[in-house]
Design a protein around this nucleic acid. Structure first.
Lengths: 112, 112
DNA sequence: TTTGTAATTAAGGCATTGCTTATTTAAGGG
DNA sequence: CCCTTAAATAAGCAATGCCTTAATTACAAA
């Protein structure tokens, strides 16, 4: 329940676009930067944030840095959302049980 | 692929805590604010952001505003993450197929 | 109508974020 | 060894975000 810095990382639309690009496959930093209007240093800074939140990982290949999605960050996000949702649908089930009980009471009352 | 403002909403830890609280059930604005150190207006502003991104919904009850989770925002988040992950695991499958093919080639070569 | 309660909106300050250009680090190629 | 390419870091600046207190709106109760 602590960190969850990954949400902060996803708050920025440029960073989300980077992740969407990487969903299509690995890319070098330069290739990523080339697809944006903003400067390469700006992208480099975004990549740093994504690295620190474990949403991407990188490996060196000569001068190039090859980036790809890191499942760890996605896991974290997914489980946070799932946890929230499960509580929510848990409440729904409870409501349903409540309704069922009321119905059976009504039926019982009708019988006499 | 547009909006995704909900990620920006979740970037703030206070807003995430509000959602976690609401996962336990409906709460009035004042009850939420009472559980934080920060002022009530601060919480009110956070609730506004959560409303606008469809992460919570509200109904009036006399002077009180009763808040609860809104599934729409969660849906949006969940599907964005799922889409990203599916591309990623799609790539893994491809890699696996690739490996399998190489293995069978090696085996075939060995036979003679 | 006046008073009290619940909540939101307004206005202003301060910190953080994301961009830019300039500089630095690192790895080939001639 | 120099020069080029690829990327990251530094420094500075404008915009945004979150908090505060003060003012406003809405409803109910005396």
């Amino acid at each position: 329940m602590g960190g969850m810095q990954s949400f902060m990382a996803l708050a920025d639309p440029t960073r989300r676009r980077i992740l969407e690009m990487l969903a299509g496959g690995q890319l070098a930093a330069g290739e990523i930067a080339g697809r944006f209007e903003v400067s390469a240093p700006a992208i480099s800074q975004h990549l740093k944030v994504l690295r620190q939140t474990h949403l991407v990982r990188v490996r060196a290949e000569a001068q190039r840095r090859i980036y790809e999605l890191d499942p760890r960050g996605l896991d974290e996000l997914e489980s946070w959302v799932a946890r929230l949702r499960s509580f929510w649908s848990g409440r729904l089930d409870e409501l349903e049980r409540q309704l069922r009980k009321e119905n059976s009471n009504r039926r019982r009352r009708k019988k006499r």
